[in-house]
Computed example of a mutant assay.
Amino acid sequence: MDLFSRSWAALRAAVADLADEDFARPSGCAGWLVRDLVCHLVIDAQDVLITLVTPAASEPTHTAVTYWRVTGTPPTGEDPLDALTVRLAAAYGDPRLLAFHLDDVGSAAGRAAELADPGLRVSTQDMVLTAGDYLSAYVLEWTLHHLDLIAHLPGAAEPPAESLARARAMLEEIAGAPFPASWSDQDALRVGTGRRAPTAAERAELGPLAAKLPLVLG
Protein backbone atom coordinates (compact mmCIF):
# COMPACT_ATOMS: atom_id res chain seq x y z
CA MET A 1 0.00 0.00 0.00
CA ASP A 2 2.96 2.30 0.58
CA LEU A 3 4.02 1.67 -3.01
CA PHE A 4 0.54 2.67 -4.18
CA SER A 5 0.99 6.02 -2.44
CA ARG A 6 4.48 6.60 -3.84
CA SER A 7 3.59 5.68 -7.42
CA TRP A 8 0.39 7.75 -7.31
CA ALA A 9 2.14 10.77 -5.78
CA ALA A 10 4.86 10.60 -8.44
CA LEU A 11 2.30 10.45 -11.25
CA ARG A 12 0.32 13.40 -9.88
CA ALA A 13 3.53 15.39 -9.45
CA ALA A 14 4.44 14.68 -13.09
CA VAL A 15 1.04 16.04 -14.17
CA ALA A 16 1.49 19.11 -11.97
CA ASP A 17 4.82 19.82 -13.71
CA LEU A 18 3.28 19.84 -17.20
CA ALA A 19 3.32 23.06 -19.18
CA ASP A 20 -0.01 24.07 -20.71
CA GLU A 21 1.18 23.14 -24.19
CA ASP A 22 2.12 19.63 -23.01
CA PHE A 23 -1.55 18.72 -22.57
CA ALA A 24 -1.97 18.86 -26.36
CA ARG A 25 0.93 16.48 -27.04
CA PRO A 26 0.34 12.80 -27.83
CA SER A 27 0.51 10.35 -24.96
CA GLY A 28 1.64 6.75 -24.96
CA CYS A 29 -2.02 5.61 -25.11
CA ALA A 30 -3.23 5.04 -28.67
CA GLY A 31 -5.63 7.75 -29.77
CA TRP A 32 -5.19 9.89 -26.65
CA LEU A 33 -3.50 13.21 -26.06
CA VAL A 34 -1.91 13.92 -22.70
CA ARG A 35 -5.06 15.79 -21.66
CA ASP A 36 -7.16 12.69 -22.41
CA LEU A 37 -4.86 10.56 -20.28
CA VAL A 38 -5.07 13.05 -17.40
CA CYS A 39 -8.86 12.98 -17.64
CA HIS A 40 -8.69 9.18 -17.46
CA LEU A 41 -6.63 9.51 -14.28
CA VAL A 42 -9.41 11.61 -12.74
CA ILE A 43 -11.83 8.76 -13.49
CA ASP A 44 -9.35 6.24 -12.05
CA ALA A 45 -9.10 8.28 -8.84
CA GLN A 46 -12.89 8.31 -8.58
CA ASP A 47 -12.91 4.52 -9.02
CA VAL A 48 -10.43 4.14 -6.16
CA LEU A 49 -12.62 6.27 -3.89
CA ILE A 50 -15.76 4.35 -4.84
CA THR A 51 -14.16 0.93 -4.41
CA LEU A 52 -12.65 1.69 -1.01
CA VAL A 53 -16.11 2.52 0.34
CA THR A 54 -17.77 -0.52 -1.26
CA PRO A 55 -17.18 -3.31 1.27
CA ALA A 56 -17.84 -6.94 0.44
CA ALA A 57 -18.96 -9.71 2.78
CA SER A 58 -17.76 -12.66 0.70
CA GLU A 59 -14.26 -14.10 0.44
CA PRO A 60 -11.83 -12.55 -2.07
CA THR A 61 -12.13 -13.89 -5.60
CA HIS A 62 -9.13 -12.07 -7.09
CA THR A 63 -5.64 -10.89 -6.21
CA ALA A 64 -3.57 -7.93 -7.38
CA VAL A 65 -2.47 -10.01 -10.37
CA THR A 66 -5.72 -11.76 -11.30
CA TYR A 67 -7.50 -8.39 -11.08
CA TRP A 68 -6.13 -7.78 -14.57
CA ARG A 69 -7.93 -9.20 -17.59
CA VAL A 70 -5.71 -9.85 -20.59
CA THR A 71 -6.98 -9.36 -24.13
CA GLY A 72 -5.19 -9.55 -27.44
CA THR A 73 -6.71 -6.37 -28.86
CA PRO A 74 -4.76 -3.14 -28.32
CA PRO A 75 -6.95 -0.09 -27.66
CA THR A 76 -7.55 2.30 -30.53
CA GLY A 77 -9.21 5.11 -28.61
CA GLU A 78 -12.51 4.41 -30.36
CA ASP A 79 -14.15 2.41 -27.55
CA PRO A 80 -17.27 4.31 -26.31
CA LEU A 81 -15.76 4.94 -22.87
CA ASP A 82 -12.46 6.00 -24.40
CA ALA A 83 -14.32 8.36 -26.72
CA LEU A 84 -16.24 9.79 -23.79
CA THR A 85 -12.96 10.44 -21.99
CA VAL A 86 -11.73 12.44 -24.98
CA ARG A 87 -14.90 14.57 -24.99
CA LEU A 88 -14.69 15.15 -21.25
CA ALA A 89 -11.06 16.20 -21.50
CA ALA A 90 -11.85 18.69 -24.28
CA ALA A 91 -14.69 20.15 -22.22
CA TYR A 92 -12.26 21.42 -19.60
CA GLY A 93 -10.87 23.94 -22.07
CA ASP A 94 -8.19 25.31 -19.76
CA PRO A 95 -5.72 22.49 -18.98
CA ARG A 96 -5.09 24.00 -15.54
CA LEU A 97 -8.70 23.20 -14.62
CA LEU A 98 -8.08 19.57 -15.55
CA ALA A 99 -4.86 19.50 -13.54
CA PHE A 100 -6.66 21.06 -10.57
CA HIS A 101 -9.43 18.45 -10.73
CA LEU A 102 -6.88 15.64 -10.75
CA ASP A 103 -5.04 17.18 -7.80
CA ASP A 104 -8.30 17.57 -5.88
CA VAL A 105 -9.77 14.11 -6.50
CA GLY A 106 -6.37 12.44 -6.66
CA SER A 107 -5.33 13.77 -3.27
CA ALA A 108 -8.56 12.43 -1.79
CA ALA A 109 -7.92 9.01 -3.33
CA GLY A 110 -4.41 9.04 -1.92
CA ARG A 111 -5.66 9.87 1.58
CA ALA A 112 -8.35 7.18 1.37
CA ALA A 113 -5.70 4.62 0.42
CA GLU A 114 -3.51 5.59 3.36
CA LEU A 115 -6.46 5.21 5.75
CA ALA A 116 -7.72 1.91 4.34
CA ASP A 117 -7.37 -1.35 6.25
CA PRO A 118 -5.31 -3.65 3.97
CA GLY A 119 -7.44 -6.61 5.01
CA LEU A 120 -10.75 -4.94 4.21
CA ARG A 121 -12.63 -6.81 1.49
CA VAL A 122 -13.91 -4.55 -1.27
CA SER A 123 -15.98 -5.10 -4.39
CA THR A 124 -15.38 -3.75 -7.89
CA GLN A 125 -16.31 -4.95 -11.39
CA ASP A 126 -17.91 -8.13 -10.00
CA MET A 127 -14.68 -8.98 -8.17
CA VAL A 128 -13.88 -9.14 -4.46
CA LEU A 129 -10.37 -8.27 -3.32
CA THR A 130 -8.69 -7.16 -0.15
CA ALA A 131 -8.03 -3.43 -0.15
CA GLY A 132 -4.32 -4.25 -0.07
CA ASP A 133 -4.53 -6.32 -3.25
CA TYR A 134 -6.76 -3.79 -4.95
CA LEU A 135 -4.33 -0.94 -4.27
CA SER A 136 -1.38 -3.13 -5.25
CA ALA A 137 -3.02 -3.73 -8.63
CA TYR A 138 -3.05 0.00 -9.16
CA VAL A 139 0.74 0.20 -8.84
CA LEU A 140 0.80 -1.36 -12.30
CA GLU A 141 -1.86 1.07 -13.54
CA TRP A 142 -0.09 4.15 -12.22
CA THR A 143 3.31 3.05 -13.47
CA LEU A 144 2.13 2.26 -16.99
CA HIS A 145 0.23 5.54 -17.21
CA HIS A 146 3.23 7.46 -15.89
CA LEU A 147 5.20 6.00 -18.80
CA ASP A 148 2.31 6.96 -21.12
CA LEU A 149 2.30 10.51 -19.77
CA ILE A 150 5.99 11.11 -20.48
CA ALA A 151 6.21 9.09 -23.72
CA HIS A 152 6.72 12.26 -25.78
CA LEU A 153 8.04 14.55 -23.06
CA PRO A 154 11.85 14.24 -22.97
CA GLY A 155 13.29 15.17 -19.61
CA ALA A 156 10.07 14.59 -17.67
CA ALA A 157 10.32 12.82 -14.33
CA GLU A 158 10.12 9.04 -14.60
CA PRO A 159 8.18 6.66 -12.33
CA PRO A 160 9.95 5.65 -9.10
CA ALA A 161 12.40 2.79 -9.59
CA GLU A 162 10.60 0.64 -7.05
CA SER A 163 7.29 1.17 -8.87
CA LEU A 164 8.85 0.13 -12.17
CA ALA A 165 10.33 -2.98 -10.58
CA ARG A 166 7.05 -3.99 -8.92
CA ALA A 167 5.05 -3.33 -12.10
CA ARG A 168 7.47 -5.46 -14.10
CA ALA A 169 7.22 -8.29 -11.56
CA MET A 170 3.42 -8.19 -11.77
CA LEU A 171 3.47 -8.19 -15.56
CA GLU A 172 5.86 -11.16 -15.56
CA GLU A 173 3.49 -13.00 -13.24
CA ILE A 174 0.61 -12.23 -15.59
CA ALA A 175 2.70 -13.41 -18.55
CA GLY A 176 3.80 -16.55 -16.73
CA ALA A 177 7.43 -15.93 -17.71
CA PRO A 178 10.18 -13.37 -17.08
CA PHE A 179 11.34 -10.80 -19.59
CA PRO A 180 15.04 -10.90 -20.52
CA ALA A 181 17.16 -9.89 -17.53
CA SER A 182 19.12 -7.46 -19.70
CA TRP A 183 16.00 -5.41 -20.42
CA SER A 184 15.23 -2.31 -18.43
CA ASP A 185 11.97 -2.27 -16.49
CA GLN A 186 10.65 0.41 -18.84
CA ASP A 187 11.39 -1.67 -21.94
CA ALA A 188 9.78 -4.74 -20.38
CA LEU A 189 6.63 -2.80 -19.53
CA ARG A 190 6.36 -0.97 -22.85
CA VAL A 191 7.03 -4.00 -25.05
CA GLY A 192 5.10 -6.37 -22.79
CA THR A 193 1.93 -4.28 -22.97
CA GLY A 194 2.23 -3.37 -26.64
CA ARG A 195 3.18 0.24 -26.09
CA ARG A 196 5.98 -0.34 -28.55
CA ALA A 197 6.85 -3.22 -30.82
CA PRO A 198 9.96 -5.28 -30.05
CA THR A 199 12.91 -5.02 -32.38
CA ALA A 200 13.97 -8.16 -34.23
CA ALA A 201 16.75 -8.69 -31.70
CA GLU A 202 14.37 -8.22 -28.78
CA ARG A 203 11.87 -10.64 -30.28
CA ALA A 204 14.63 -13.25 -30.53
CA GLU A 205 15.55 -12.65 -26.88
CA LEU A 206 11.93 -13.13 -25.84
CA GLY A 207 11.81 -16.64 -27.22
CA PRO A 208 8.44 -18.40 -26.65
CA LEU A 209 7.17 -15.41 -24.64
CA ALA A 210 7.01 -13.37 -27.86
CA ALA A 211 3.97 -15.37 -28.98
CA LYS A 212 2.03 -14.19 -25.91
CA LEU A 213 2.65 -10.51 -26.52
CA PRO A 214 1.29 -7.94 -26.34
CA LEU A 215 -0.47 -8.34 -23.01
CA VAL A 216 -3.29 -5.84 -23.32
CA LEU A 217 -4.59 -5.24 -19.82
CA GLY A 218 -8.13 -4.27 -18.96
Rank of each mutant, 00 (worst) to 15 (best):
G93D: 01
D44A: 13
V34G: 01
A10K: 11
V139K: 00
P95V: 10
E173V: 03
L144C: 08
P208V: 00
A16V: 13
V216N: 04
V216R: 10
R111F: 07
T51I: 03
P154L: 12
P160W: 04
L49V: 04
P154A: 13
V128D: 00
G72F: 00
V191W: 06
W8P: 03
D94Q: 04
D44C: 11
V38P: 02
S58G: 13
A197R: 13
E202W: 13
A204H: 13
C29Y: 11
V38I: 06
G72V: 05
Q186H: 12
R69M: 08
E205P: 09
T193S: 06
A108W: 01
L18H: 08
T73F: 08
P118V: 08
L189R: 07
R35D: 06
T51D: 05
A90H: 14
T73G: 02
P160F: 07
A200T: 14
L81H: 15
A24C: 11
M170Y: 03
G192F: 12
A90K: 06
L149Q: 01
A156D: 13
D44L: 09
P80Y: 08
T54W: 11
L81Q: 15
A137I: 06
A109W: 05
P95W: 02
L153A: 14
R6V: 14
E141T: 00
R195C: 15
D94K: 00
V38H: 03
P180S: 01
E59S: 15
D22R: 01
A157G: 15
L206K: 11
A165I: 10
E202L: 14
A211G: 09
D20G: 10
V105R: 00
V70E: 06
S107T: 14
P159D: 09
L149D: 08
C39M: 13
P75A: 02
D17V: 05
R190W: 10
L115F: 07
L171Y: 03
E158P: 01
L97E: 10
Y92N: 03
R69A: 02
Y138A: 05
R190V: 15
D187A: 15
L88A: 08
S107H: 13
A200M: 14
A56F: 10
L97H: 12
L129W: 09
L18M: 12
D79A: 14
E114F: 00
D94Y: 05
M1A: 12
D20E: 14
F4I: 06
G207S: 06
H145C: 10
L217I: 13
L3T: 15
C39S: 05
E141W: 04
T66V: 01
Y134F: 15
T76H: 09
A89Q: 06
D47A: 14
Y134S: 05
W142C: 09
D20I: 03
L217A: 10
S27L: 08
L18V: 09
T124R: 12
T143N: 01
L189I: 07
A90G: 00
D148Q: 10
P55Q: 12
P55Y: 02
L41A: 10
R111K: 11
E172R: 10
R96T: 08
L97Y: 06
A169K: 00
L41I: 09
V42P: 02
L120T: 04
T71F: 05
T124V: 13
R111A: 11
G93S: 05
L135I: 00
A156P: 08
G192Y: 10
L209N: 06
A204Q: 15
A19Y: 04
L98C: 04
A211Y: 07
A19V: 02
V38N: 04
P60R: 02
V65C: 02
D117M: 00
H40V: 07
L147D: 00
